[in-house]
């Protein structure tokens, strides 16, 4: 509020008193909010790195899993690493193509009709379904009939990834300008050709990076695996289609509540491995986005 003072022209100072203080406090609170978030994040990352780094080694990542009471110097998490790679890999192979096709349906074919809107809405709802439900679901529908296996776990993770891939792919497809599609139709392409040869390649960078983030999320999930792969292994089971299996998050879960320091140390090492994996995938996703959006600027 500018008041004209007699001697030195209009008063353009900031509003004085209580209003200004309230504003300052509000800004301070917002910064505090951010700090409140950084502290536990820093704390967790620091702890994981500090406690995990000493046990990490190539032999740790490849040795068989010792009993819980074994000291930290013995054994490793080899079977769990293999399990995570195989199970997450299988889940990715299943969920990503299906998710991309689902997003293609939503954006190129069905979008505005009732069915399209229903599918889009429930796909978003599905991203909020707790991962434990996916585990119970696959247990009820698969494990009950076919037993525990890495594949059942992959199915559960795939169900988790599917709506995430659909949503992120859909957002990428939407960004492709209509003029590119028109240019393709104009030389006599069918809709499937337009989609596969122009739209998809144009959106590919964003699609891949979205898929990588979904993979990072799936690799860290425990609950879907608890009811589908059984765990309890000490040596690796390289066949995901038959027999119980083990994965890194599950190993951490088993070891976390045990009183033995060796088991806990292995848990920290496994946690560091998991976070490093998620981190690598996240960085790869950002790099791909940056590189590909340079190539296909609109």
């Amino acid at each position: 509020m500018a008041a004209i003072t007699q001697d030195r022209g209009p008063d353009l100072r900031e509003p004085a008193g209580w209003r200004r203080t309230k504003d300052r406090i509000a800004t301070l609170l917002m910064v505090v909010a951010f700090v409140v978030v950084i502290i536990p994040l820093g704390f967790v990352l620091f702890t994981v790195i500090a406690k995990g780094i000493s046990i990490i080694s190539v032999s740790f990542l490849t040795s068989p899993i010792p009993p819980l009471f074994a000291p930290a110097s013995e054994g490793g998490i080899g079977p769990a690493v293999l399990g995570t790679l195989e199970i997450t890999g299988l889940a990715t192979i299943m969920a990503v193509p299906l998710g991309i096709l689902g997003a293609i349906y939503l954006n190129e074919y069905g979008g505005r009709g009732l069915l399209g809107r229903l599918i889009g809405f429930f796909s978003d709802v599905m991203t909020g379904v707790p991962s434990i439900i996916m585990g119970l679901f696959l247990f009820s529908i698969w494990v009950v009939h076919f037993g525990f296996s890495g594949f059942a776990g992959a199915l559960a993770l795939g169900c988790l990834m599917l709506p995430i891939v659909i949503r992120s792919t859909y957002e990428m497809l939407r960004l492709v300008p209509g003029s590119l599609r028109e240019g393709s139709y104009a030389v006599g392409a069918t809709k499937s050709r337009v989609t596969m040869t122009v739209v998809l390649p144009a959106a590919l960078g964003g699609i891949v990076s979205g898929a990588l983030l979904a993979v990072a999320r799936a690799a860290g999930e425990t609950a879907p695996l608890l009811f589908t792969i059984l765990g309890g292994l000490s040596t690796a089971n390289p066949n995901p289609f038959s027999g119980a299996n083990i994965a890194i998050p599950m190993l951490i879960f088993n070891n976390a509540s045990s009183p033995y320091t060796g088991a806990q140390a292995r848990a920290w090492g496994a946690a560091l491995t998991l976070i490093a994996l998620a981190f690598i995938l996240m960085i790869a996703a950002r790099l791909i986005t940056a590189r590909f959006s340079r190539y296909s600027r609109y």
Binding site: S179, L180, E182, G183, A186, G188, R193, V198, A202, S296
Partner: peptide, 30 residues
């Protein structure tokens, strides 16, 4: 119809492909 009756648009819309692939696009899909 569109294979025989082509169209050029108001704002140039080259595909994010190489120049060669842009021109070869039509013949390839046909």
């Amino acid at each position: 119809v569109r294979r025989r009756i082509g169209m050029v648009f108001q704002k140039p819309n080259p595909f994010p492909k190489s120049i060669y692939d842009n021109v070869a696009y039509g013949p390839r899909i046909n």
